[in-house]
Write a protein that binds this DNA or RNA. Structure first.
Lengths: 351, 351
DNA sequence: CTGAAAGCGCTTACAG
DNA sequence: CTGAAAGCGCTTACAG
C-alpha cells in the first residue's frame, strides 16, 4: 500500500493538512523552515504521490480524458489518438480509449461508463448525424469535442476538414484527367462525411457539365469490405466507370483489390481516389491518390478545444476546419509514384 | 451535476445506505417490497449511476487498466490494444493507453502517473531487459503483465511468442530457398525480442553449415526508418546478401523501400522476411513473407492474466507463449501472391 | 427490516 | 504559524 498523508503526518509529527500543503506548494502556507525541511525530506524519501482517486473525489477533476472511435486498428484513428495524447499528456491528462466498431449501442454504453468514471471530457470520432449519444453528452454537460464527423451542425465543438471541398477537388481531379464516367463509393447518409463528400462529388460533376447518373453512386459505408462490395457493383456495369472516388482510403483499398481481381489495371482501366491520406496510402503499389487531411493535428486540436472547455468550465461550439489537399499518386496518374517523394503541402486551419 | 445517493435518500425518505443496497442488489437486504419498488422507480427515473471515483476510493478498485506501448500508429500495437480491450471491456474495465515512443523516461513517467491514478493493473509492451520500470512495478505490487518483450526472464506474467523459434523458421526458410548470404536486420541487444530472434537467426545459419559473418548483421532497432538505414548498409556491401530476415515487419517495410530505391527486385535480387504478420504485410506488393503471431490474442491473453491477478489479489508469473508460424508470400517466393490467395483481408475497419 | 456511523484519502475554509 | 473539521460520494459492518 502506498503511503498516505495520515501516515506521513504521524512520522513528521504534524497535522495531515500541513503535509498536504507542503506537497502542493500552497503559497498561503507560512511554516517554520525547519518543519518544511523535515516534511520535504520525508516526501522525497517516501516518494509520496497523492492518491489520485481521493484527489479526484475532492477536486471533482480526474485529469482523465477519453477518446471514442470506431476502431483503433484503422490507421486513421491511430494517428488521431496520437494527436490527442501528444496534446493532452504534457498537461497532465491521461487518455482512455474506447472502440465502438460503429455500433451505436457500444458507443452509448462506453459513454455511460466514462461518465460514471467522471472523465473530465470526451473526444468522439464515431458520431452519426443527430446522434442521441451526442445529445446526451450535451444534456449531461459533459465537455466534449467531435472529430471528423459532426452530429447537429454547429451545436458542438468540432474539428474536421471541409468535406464538401475535399469531395470536390478529388472528383475535379478525375474530371481534369478526362474521365467521363466517374463512380462514387459513398459513405452513409447518416454520417456527415458521407453526406458532404457526396455533395462535393455531385458538385464537381455538375460543374463539369457531365450528366449526373445515380447508378454511378454505390453506398460502401466505411469498411474495406464495403468498399470492395460497392466497387464490384460499379465495375460490373455494362458501361462501367473509368474512375472512382471513394469516401475513405480504406474503402479505396477495398476497391483496388476488387479491380485487380477483375483483371483491371490501375490507373489505366480504372483510376481511384481515396480520402484522408493514411500512412498506408503512400505505401500501396501504385500509391493511392487521396485527399490529405492533417490527422495528427485533428487529434491535437481536439485535445486543445477539450482542455479549454474543462479549464474554463464552459461548453464551447468552436469549430476548427482544416483545408483538404489533393495528393496525386499512381492510382490516378501513371508514373506519379516517382522515387522522389512528394510531401503534401501544409494545410490551412481556420479557427 | 449527476444525482447522488444523499439526494435520492431525501426523495425516497430512506437512508442513503438503503439506496446503495438496492442499487447494488445487496442479497442480504431484507426490505419491504413497497419500499424497494419506490426506490427502484426512483433509480430508473433519475438514471442513477454511482460515482465511480467515490466508489473507487471506498472499494480500492477503479476498474481501469492501462496499456503502455511504444506507439499506437504501429499496426502491431493497435491490434494488441484491440485484444486487450476486447478481453477487458466485457468485464467492466476501461482501458487507458500510453505511448512511450521507446523512451524509458516517458515510460517511467507514465507508470508513475498511472499508479497515482490507482489503475488496477498495467499491460506493458515496451519493456527492455532488466527494465527498472518493471522492477518498480513489482516493488509497488502493481498487478502487471508484460507482452511481446520480457524484462527479467520468468519474473513477471508474460505473453509472447517463442522468438528463438520464430527467428529460426524465418531464416531456415531462406536457407531452404538456396540463399547463401543471409543478412539480419537486428533488434537491440537491450530488448528480449532483439536478442532471441537474433539467436534464432544464428542458430539457423549454424544448422545449415553456412559460415557466420558478423558483417551480415546490422542493428535496425524497430522502426521503419531504422530498417531502411540498416538495409541500405547491408545492400551496399560488395558481397551483398541475397536475402534478409528483419526483426519486425515495420523494419522489413523499410528494407523493401530501400531495396526498390536501389533498383533491386524483390524477391529476385533480394528476398525479405519480416516478423509479426501485421495487416499491412499481406497488402504490400509483393506480399511480405513473415512470421505470424496472433497479435489480437496477445492482447486478450494479457488482459486475462491481468484480471486474474486483480481478482485473486496475487501477483503471477504465468507465461503464455504462442507458437510462431511462417507465412510465405511474394517477398521470398515469386508467384506466392497468386490472385487466388488475394481475397480482401477481413476488415472491420471504419473511418 | 432499516438506520446511523465509520472510513476510503484527500483539500481547504476556518480557528486559534 | 499550525491544527481541527468538514466534506467530496460512496460501501458495509454493526446496531437496534
Amino acid at each position: 500500500m502506498p503511503v498516505t498523508l495520515k501516515e506521513l503526518a504521524v512520522r513528521a509529527r504534524v497535522h495531515p493538512s500541513t503535509i498536504s500543503r507542503v506537497a502542493n506548494n500552497d503559497p498561503s502556507l507560512r511554516i517554520a523552515p525547519t518543519t518544511r525541511q523535515r516534511i520535504e525530506t520525508l516526501l522525497r524519501e517516501t516518494e509520496y504521490r497523492p492518491n489520485g482517486v481521493a484527489r479526484g473525489l475532492k477536486l471533482r477533476q480526474t485529469f482523465a480524458l477519453a477518446v471514442v472511435i470506431p476502431d483503433i486498428t484503422n490507421p486513421f484513428f491511430a494517428a488521431l489518438f496520437r494527436g490527442v495524447e501528444d496534446g493532452a499528456s504534457p498537461r497532465g491528462y491521461n487518455v482512455l480509449l474506447c472502440n465502438t466498431d460503429g455500433s451505436p449501442e457500444r458507443q452509448r454504453s462506453h459513454l455511460h461508463s466514462l461518465h460514471a468514471r467522471r472523465v473530465d471530457g470526451v473526444i468522439l470520432a464515431s458520431s452519426v448525424l443527430r446522434d442521441p449519444s451526442v445529445r446526451w453528452l450535451r444534456h449531461q454537460h459533459i465537455p466534449h469535442v467531435l472529430v471528423n464527423r459532426f452530429s447537429d451542425d454547429g451545436q458542438d465543438a468540432f474539428v474536421g476538414s471541409d468535406d464538401v471541398l475535399g469531395g470536390l477537388v478529388a472528383t475535379r481531379h478525375l474530371v481534369e484527367l478526362g474521365h467521363r464516367r466517374i463512380g462514387h463509393l459513398a459513405g452513409k447518409l447518416t454520417v456527415s462525411t458521407g453526406v458532404l463528400r457526396r455533395r462535393g462529388y455531385l458538385g464537381a460533376i455538375a460543374d463539369s457539365g457531365l450528366p449526373a447518373d445515380a447508378a454511378l453512386i454505390a453506398e460502401s459505408g466505411y469498411t474495406e469490405e464495403g468498399g470492395a462490395r460497392a466497387a464490384e457493383q460499379l465495375l460490373s456495369m455494362r458501361d462501367r466507370p473509368t474512375a472512382i472516388f471513394a469516401v475513405t482510403d480504406m474503402t479505396a483499398v477495398g476497391a483496388c483489390t476488387v479491380a485487380r481481381r477483375m483483371g483491371l489495371r490501375i490507373p489505366e482501366d480504372v483510376a481511384v481516389v481515396g480520402y484522408n491520406d493514411i500512412p498506408l496510402a503512400s505505401r500501396l503499389v501504385p500509391g493511392l491518390t487521396t485527399v490529405h487531411v492533417p490527422i495528427h493535428e485533428f487529434g491535437a486540436a481536439a485535445a486543445r478545444l477539450l482542455m479549454e472547455q474543462i479549464e474554463t468550465g464552459e461548453a464551447s461550439r468552436r469549430r476548427v476546419i482544416f483545408n483538404p489537399q489533393l495528393v496525386v499518386r499512381g492510382s490516378t496518374v501513371g508514373g506519379a509514384d516517382a522515387p522522389v517523394n512528394r510531401r503534401p503541402a501544409a494545410a490551412f486551419a481556420t479557427e
